[in-house]
């Protein structure tokens, strides 16, 4: 009875949460690595102009930004398809797209914190 089974038509809905989930991950991973790195002294190991810890944090931040870029792109293309057919999912894709942009902005905003001069000073 295939008509009875509902497929995974809820992708758009999941994407509404995805953008900010990436933000939350960025937030927690940065916070966690920062804490661990300070504890283990990674901020005292220079690599080029910056410390190991700072490189690591910047890398983590950039990786999350890249994922957000992908989320945005995915929402945009799905929006194009669903909007053309006037499906109710289009609303969710539009919202998801806006949320991915907002999440990216929030990630940039917390990323500014990486510019503080001393990472581990209490």
């Amino acid at each position: 009875m295939n008509g009875i089974m509902t497929g995974s038509r809820n992708q758009a809905f999941l994407f509404m949460a995805l953008g900010f989930t990436v933000w939350a991950l960025a937030f927690s991973v940065l916070y966690g690595v920062q804490g661990t790195g300070c504890e283990l002294g990674w901020h005292r190991q220079p690599i080029g102009p910056l410390s190991l810890l700072r490189w690591l944090l910047i890398l983590i931040w950039a990786a999350h930004m890249a994922v957000l870029g992908w989320v945005y792109w995915r929402c945009r293309s799905a929006l194009a398809v669903t909007a053309a057919k006037a499906m109710p999912e289009a609303f969710l894709w539009r919202a998801s797209m806006a949320l991915s942009i907002t999440a990216a902005a929030a990630t940039v905003w917390i990323g500014l914190a990486l510019l503080v001069p001393s990472i581990c000073v209490v």
Binding site: F20, Y31, C38, L99, A103, I110, S118, I119, V121, V122
Partner: peptide, 24 residues
């Protein structure tokens, strides 16, 4: 939705005075 997520990133602001690194 944005508010819901962001609000989970705030908890430490109640602990600003407990001695947490500047970056955090």
């Amino acid at each position: 939705v944005a508010m819901a997520f962001l609000s989970f990133g705030l908890w430490v602001h109640h602990m600003f005075t407990v001695g947490i690194p500047h970056l955090a």
